[in-house]
Design a protein around this nucleic acid. Structure first.
Lengths: 342, 342
DNA sequence: TGTTAGCACTCCAATCGAATGAGTGCTAAT
DNA sequence: ATTAGCACTCATTCGATTGGAGTGCTAACA
């Protein structure tokens, strides 16, 4: 059996309707809902075919049909019109030029959640080929040094280093120069043991400080590991009865709290170099077990070559894919534009 | 009518039992549960009295009794034995000496949530009389300066300052000296407009940079405002049927996400100078509307004079007050000890 | 041959009533 | 003052009933 145009139209109608109501949709509804001018009986025949083809399924005999994951997949892949929508609120917010990245990201997550009524997440952009840009050692206390490490993309890390021996200003300056001249512009692969021991030797009696600083540098560059993830709108899952039962809700909320679990979503997307940057995971397709009753849409944004972050939306399978993808597209552009302006 | 000793014992038994089961408790249960050797009928009479006195109430006629807020209050205030428990896991974790405060706090929140099965929150310690300790301006890029601001308690803030005019190293050094000599050790009240304009004047053509740095300093010192709050175990609310219905769960989860709402809990506690640092809010006593069906226990910890943070536990009214308060006490000590060791 | 009307059938969801049982309040006896 | 006993209340549970939405199938029709 083939999937002719009429079947596609009917499938589309079923999905559209189901997205709105969340209830299984019957033949009579489709008969009236579409402009095909077919009786419910005909629709029934077609629906039987569609079920056989695996695009829809019945929760139980004598119930209406709901889309299967395969049905959603077809819908997302081929049937969605590209729409451009205004995301006015977002635009305005971004124009305010929040200068603190984390504030901005929290805001984005929140606005997105409020706008879409789904749960959202966003990660800070991270460099993939992180390079060290600048190191500064300063004395803040008699026996405390502050190491400030700046990597490309102006990601800043602070580290307090305890020192036993006192350092005069001159030595500190020397250490600073030593570290900066040797390490700046290097990526994590380029800082090897040989270089480290050479540096230590040059630092003489202060080699332990150098060691600590280098360790801190390593942590700073390898920032991907504990990638910050901001989430918002977790409570939105209560708006969709199919997700809101205790068991599922609890698991989902847990997944949101344990942000580490969300990294799975992110990693995959960031690795994928060539794509419009938008990924849709329907039901079982998602890598996160507790989200198998959800759909997840992720978008990668790229502020500059190699510096990427991810935005994600988690909602019920009957999510308004059209709107979500549109919104994410907008957002990608906004973020990228914002960055250029700065 | 008076609250004699027997009534208190019965009330205590009712509460204990209710804490365990979460179900209304009847006279027969108490009759067997306690060592008073009274028949259920007698208990019934006493319970009627207790109800009249407002310590317990019936969800409906012919149901058992549950404690009222007033009953819990009496229990917490007078009837709880002080117990000391081991919190081994916590201890071990703290001994590992996490050097990043925010990591540590996240961990504490999490361990506490896992241990108690309630939702938890913790705020970073903040100075109340914040003083500037150290400023460092460094050039990271042709037209970008990095301002690192350290306030007492080693809270570090970074700020990127855009500059149009280029600065040579010497000027930068002068600016650093200028800022440090004039501002170090000052609190926010002490940095007034007069001082600012004097500084600007001394900075000459670079007055705009000074202005930006000072603004950043202001933000850094006034950190209380956007007080970081870490939460964990929000999913625990699903473990208590009385909190897990859609409406309430949704509101609670929202409150946890919107951490701003939680600050209400914190502020009050931090302000209160004299107390063991532990506060119990039962039901309507809490300042947060959406938690009116919960109890909240907060503890203040103090790392050094004036530098305080808050730990909080949010659970059902039938929370195990005894254990929770014990655990929080332990934790206060651990945190304070940890700090001294460093 | 594709479409449609009609009908029997299925099954969920809601409704109702009876039975159950935990728990109470009250009274009378101890 | 305490207790046994009894009538009463009310949430909960269970089964039976019903209504209705929706299907599948068949026969008629264009």
């Amino acid at each position: 059996m083939q999937l002719d145009e009429r079947k596609v139209k009917i499938l589309q109608a079923i999905i559209r309707n189901y997205l709105e109501t969340g209830e299984p949709v019957g033949s009579r509804t489709i008969s009236k809902f579409t402009d095909l001018n077919l009786s419910s009986a005909t629709i029934r025949n077609e629906m039987a075919d569609l079920e056989e083809l695996g695009y829809i399924l019945q929760p139980h005999t004598s119930a209406g049909r709901i889309p299967s994951d395969k049905g959603y997949r077809l819908y997302v892949d081929t049937m969605m019109e590209e729409r451009t929508r205004e995301v006015e609120e977002l635009k305005e917010m971004l124009l305010e030029k929040e200068d603190k990245m984390d504030h901005l990201l929290k805001q984005v997550a929140k606005v997105l959640a409020v706008n879409t009524n789904y749960a959202t997440m966003i990660t800070a952009p991270t460099y993939h080929r992180n390079k060290l840009k600048f190191i500064q050692l300063s004395r803040v206390d008699r026996n405390q040094l502050l190491a400030v490490i700046v990597v490309e993309g102006n990601v800043i890390k602070n580290n307090i280093v305890q020192v036993t021996d006192e350092l005069d200003d001159e030595t500190l300056l020397k250490l600073n120069i030593l570290l900066n001249t040797h390490l700046n512009g290097l990526s994590i692969e380029e800082i090897n043991l040989g270089m480290i021991s050479a540096l230590k030797q040059q630092a003489g009696s202060h080699s332990s400080i150098v060691a600590e600083v280098i360790e801190a540098v390593g942590e700073a560059i390898q920032a991907d590991e504990d990638l910050e993830i901001y989430t918002s709108g977790a409570n939105n899952i209560f708006k969709y009865p199919e997700l809101a039962d205790h068991q599922k809700a609890s698991e989902l909320i847990t997944a949101f709290e344990e942000k580490r679990m969300l990294t799975q979503l992110v990693q995959e997307n960031l690795a994928d170099e060539n794509s419009t940057g938008i990924q849709v995971y329907i039901g079982d397709e998602t890598p996160i077990q507790s989200m198998k009753d959800c759909s997840v849409v992720t978008a990668t944004y790229e502020l500059e070559e190699g510096m990427r972050g991810t935005i994600g939306i988690i909602g019920p399978k009957r999510m308004d894919y059209d709107k979500v993808i549109g919104t994410l597209r907008q957002l990608q552009n906004q973020l990228e534009e914002l960055y250029k302006k700065k």
